[in-house]
Amino acid sequence: MSTFWKELMSKLGVKINASTAYHPQSDGQTERVNQCLETYLRCMTGERPKEWCDWLHLAEWWYNTSYHSTILVTPYQALYGQPPPINVPYVAGDSVVAEVDRSLQHREAALKMLKFHMKRAQDRMKVQADKKRREREFQVGDWVFLKLQPYRQQTVVSRGCQKLAPKWFGPFAVLSKVGKVAYRLQLPEGSRVHPVFHVSQLKKRVGTDKVQSDLPVVDPDGSISKEPCRIIDRRLGRRGNRAVTEVLVEWSNSFPKDSTWEVLHLLKQRYPQFDT
């Protein structure tokens, strides 16, 4: 079969890009098409698992007549230069040929079953997704807190409990609404963070308490830039079987309560310019 296929393709001038299973890097487009066709055909396998091959032509028609965001047209229109014809539902009894009438009725029944299963799957996914969604809406001029988790959880500062570390900055004023679920905020000058955020990263300010208002300084790679400011306290600790000197360090671009205990000689190695 491999020899026949290679010879046939060479005579037709088609270049074969052989790929292995579950390796989309070899031929990503073909692997993606196969995933789409499998998803489409999987909707009927529960009811009629042995008849999927009889409706493979419908799956091919569905894919070729679906709009592709990459080429901005359907594959059918890209090949033939015109939009695909509209699929007119068949009414039982329209054909005088019994075999044609039976075949088309069978096709309409399969299409109805496919739409039912796809609609049920979509509703099930929507129910699970809506459990974590909250309806939020802000007005221009509202003050909101901003969640910047990637800029807070860094390996530069060793915290005892990362999950309980502060994650919210602000408050910042809402300048405008972008689309249906995004807002533009008035960030501090010199901020290197894009000012448009999804509504899930915002929460409305309640009360008058303030938290960190200045965004952390980041380097070109996006990592937070922190330097030790001063030593608050010292103590004698133990690492393994030896005693070491530990210091309570206050860091720049951070809260005072984010001060951490560091081993003195390791701190000197990381920041030799810091006067301890």
Rank of each mutant, 00 (worst) to 15 (best):
W62N: 05
S95G: 05
A59P: 00
D94L: 14
K115P: 01
T70E: 03
V96A: 14
L104D: 00
K50T: 15
V91D: 05
E99I: 07
A129D: 01
K131D: 02
H57C: 15
V97E: 12
P83M: 09
E51P: 00
T65Y: 07
D94Q: 06
E60N: 10
Q122K: 12
H57Y: 14
Q128S: 13
M113A: 15
D54P: 01
L79Q: 07
L56S: 14
L104N: 03
T65L: 07
F138P: 02
H57V: 09
K119M: 12
A78S: 13
N87G: 08
Q139E: 13
V96E: 02
R102T: 13
Q77C: 09
V88K: 03
L56P: 02
A110K: 02
H106F: 04
R107G: 03
V97G: 07
V100Q: 04
R107I: 13
S69I: 05
L114R: 02
M118Y: 01
E60A: 13
P75L: 02
R134I: 03
V100P: 00
K132F: 06
R133Y: 11
W61H: 08
K50W: 04
K112F: 03
A109C: 04
H57R: 10
R136H: 12
R102C: 12
K50G: 10
P75K: 04
T74Q: 04
Q77P: 02
S103N: 09
D94E: 14
S103G: 10
G81Q: 01
L58E: 04
S95W: 01
P89Y: 08
R134T: 13
Q122L: 11
P75G: 06
P83S: 10
A121Q: 12
K132P: 00
P49L: 08
V91E: 10
E99P: 01
H68T: 06
R134V: 15
